[in-house]
Simulated scan of single mutants.
Amino acid sequence: MKGKDCRKRKIGFLLAMILALTLLAGCGQEKAKEEGTGPKPIKIAVLPVEDTMPMLVAKEKGYFAEEQLQVELVNFQSPVEQSNGMQSGEMDGMQTDMIVAALLKDSGLDLRITSITLGVTPQEGRFAILASPQSNINSLEDLKGKNIGISYNSIIEYVTDGLLTAGGIDPAEVKKTAIPKIPVRMEMLFSNQIDAIVVPDPLVSFAEHQGAKVIAQDTEKNLSQNVLFFTQKTIEENRDGVEAFYRAYRKAVDDLNDHPEDFRTLLVENINIPEPIADAYQLQHYPQPQVPGQTDVQNILDWMNKKALLKNDLKYQDLVQEIKTP
């Protein structure tokens, strides 16, 4: 009996210690919040595109909450609205592409690209040149002298030039036509008002489903990378928050890559996936957070300088900063 009583006392003591430690940790977190020493809330400007998924998963699974971090994803419907929202000073970070990031940096917004969200490998974040089912265009050679619908001075034009050049075609040999709104671009393709267009997935997959021909795509050589940046002010004044963000982000990436079908509903509800392909569309493979390489960034900057899009002589270190999470 004495042995049993002793064991009970030990178990009781251990339970009391666990409870005390739990309460102490909770008090510490509350005190940190009161004193402003914990991570501050983070507000990120996003679009309804696939590279937002790890952030959506981190919120849904409670990974941000586990880090005692409040993250608000502010949705915009166009890159122009998103950039304007970022320049308002109300956002801490933004999900975008490297050309937009460089343009914002050049305009005076002090930012640092902290990770690639899609595009570490060529298979992630596909872009393609498409021709309509009725056209006689079947190769890059057939595009000479033809009209290609794009958006000027954008990642779309950068990918277009890269795909043409890789196929031995001088971009000057095609007629680029500005069609900024992607839905209009798609409509014009299928009504044969334009010879070809350039769009990203999931619209590439949708166009294929509708019979469009993929003339070239960036799945062998990496041309496009979507990125996430934070303002330098946020990185300096809320370093704990940014590090907590990426710890949660890493867990979400693992979940997405290990069990993609678990998140199809979340994808369909939050990302612009055309309804006819929603059930069959293959979810992306997502990279763990990592900064873009110097060559990829320099290629973008060289292209932008060639087109006289930048006023300042931007360097890799002006744009990129790695966040190491403890």
Rank of each mutant, 00 (worst) to 15 (best):
G3P: 10
K4Y: 13
K4M: 12
R7C: 12
R9L: 11
G12C: 04
L14T: 04
L15G: 07
L23W: 15
L23G: 15
L24K: 02
L24I: 03
A25V: 12
A25I: 11
A25T: 09
Q29D: 05
Q29S: 06
A32E: 12
E35Y: 00
E35D: 06
G36V: 02
P39Y: 14
P41F: 09
P41M: 06
A45P: 00
L47F: 08
L47T: 04
P48V: 02
D51P: 00
T52N: 13
M53D: 05
L56R: 04
V57Y: 01
Y63V: 15
F64I: 04
L69W: 01
E72D: 13
V74C: 12
V74D: 11
Q77W: 13
S78H: 00
S78Q: 01
Q82T: 09
Q82D: 04
S83M: 05
M86A: 07
S88W: 01
G93K: 03
G93N: 02
M94A: 02
Q95C: 11
D97A: 01
I99S: 01
V100S: 11
A102F: 10
A102S: 14
A102E: 06
L103V: 12
D106L: 06
G108R: 02
L109G: 00
L111F: 07
T114W: 03
T117A: 06
L118C: 02
L118E: 11
V120R: 15
T121E: 10
G125C: 07
I129L: 15
L130F: 05
L130V: 05
S132H: 04
N136L: 08
I137H: 00
E141G: 06
D142E: 09
K144R: 14
G145W: 03
I148G: 01
S151R: 13
Y152G: 07
Y152L: 12
L164I: 06
I169E: 13
E173C: 01
K175Y: 08
K176P: 01
K176Q: 12
P180E: 13
I182Q: 15
V184E: 14
S191M: 11
N192P: 03
Q193K: 15
A196N: 06
A196S: 10
I197K: 10
I197R: 10
V198W: 03
P200A: 15
D201E: 13
F206Q: 11
E208W: 10
K213Y: 05
V214D: 12
A216S: 14
Q217I: 00
E220F: 03
L223E: 00
Q225L: 05
V227Q: 03
T234C: 14
T234G: 14
E236I: 04
N238A: 10
N238P: 10
N238K: 09
N238Y: 06
R239H: 09
E243L: 06
Y246P: 03
R247G: 02
A248V: 04
A252L: 08
D255A: 14
P260A: 09
L267W: 09
L267Y: 14
E269H: 07
E269D: 15
E269T: 14
N272L: 12
N272F: 13
A278F: 11
Y281I: 01
Q282I: 15
Q282E: 13
L283F: 02
Q284C: 04
V291W: 11
P292Y: 05
P292I: 04
Q294E: 15
Q298L: 08
K306V: 02
L310F: 03
L310Y: 02
K311W: 07
D313S: 13
D318T: 09
E322Y: 07
E322N: 08
I323L: 02
I323Y: 06
P326E: 12
P326G: 10
